[in-house]
Design a protein around this nucleic acid. Structure first.
Length: 203
DNA sequence: GAGGAGATCGTCT
DNA sequence: GACGATCTCCTCT
């Protein structure tokens, strides 16, 4: 399936990200990730996020201070923080809070909307295995061909090959749970997901 | 279906 | 030199 004849998704404003990551993580649900790969446009709807706070959050990469690796989440809001983990996976975050203050939101799962064949190809899966395509942070970056090369990219600019956009999607029902895959500060309920959506990583 | 462990390598101490 | 915001496969029930 190719992209439908829909009007070009409008990018979110930088101010959208210039706020507390908890609010951004919740309000990002239902928004779109737009990715251009060559001549193709891949579109996916955000259905699961996690907030990582700059201060008082031992699970966040920023908790031990600014390093070369994590400097994007200390920088201006609305930029991509992509890191490599466990020897084989990339994870995509967007920086939040004003320049100089750490904070970010991790994209944990998305729902494929357009360019599904290309996503399946990138994941080496059959198109029929839709539910396995993007239901995890490492999976969605693979499906959208996101790597360290995208680190630091501005996500509020529709001329970029990766950006975040508004959608007409009705306001979803949101559930809050503890974050997944972490050992520190694991009790904080900073994971947000769309209730009933089959593409979340874990219900 | 649930649970456990290995893979694998960039980054920081 | 140790560890990690994960994924997949394998085993057990």
């Amino acid at each position: 399936m190719t992209a439908r004849a829909r009007r070009k998704p409008q990018p979110l404003a930088t101010e959208f990200f210039d706020r507390d990551p908890r609010r951004v993580a919740r309000e990002l649900l239902g928004k779109l990730i737009v990715r251009r790969v060559g001549r193709q446009t891949l579109i996916a709807r955000v259905v699961e996020t996690e907030a990582y706070l700059g201060k008082n959050d031992l699970a966040a990469h920023s908790s031990s201070g600014r390093t070369k690796r994590n400097e994007v989440i200390f920088g201006p809001p609305g930029h991509a923080y992509v890191y490599f983990i466990y020897g084989s996976h990339y994870c995509l975050n967007v920086s939040c809070m004003p320049d100089g203050v750490a904070g970010g939101v991790l994209f944990r799962a998305v729902e494929p909307i357009a360019g599904i064949e290309a996503m399946a190809q990138a994941r080496a899966l059959e198109v029929t295995e839709l539910h396995r395509l993007t239901n995890g942070p490492g999976k969605l970056t693979e499906a959208l061909s996101i790597t360290r090369a995208d680190n630091g990219m501005k996500l509020t600019d529709a001329t970029q090959s990766l950006y975040l956009a508004e959608d007409d999607f009705p306001k979803p029902r949101v559930k809050t749970t503890p974050r997944i895959g972490i050992t520190k500060a694991a009790d904080l309920k900073l994971r947000y997901l769309v209730v009933g959506n089959p593409f979340v990583s874990r219900a």
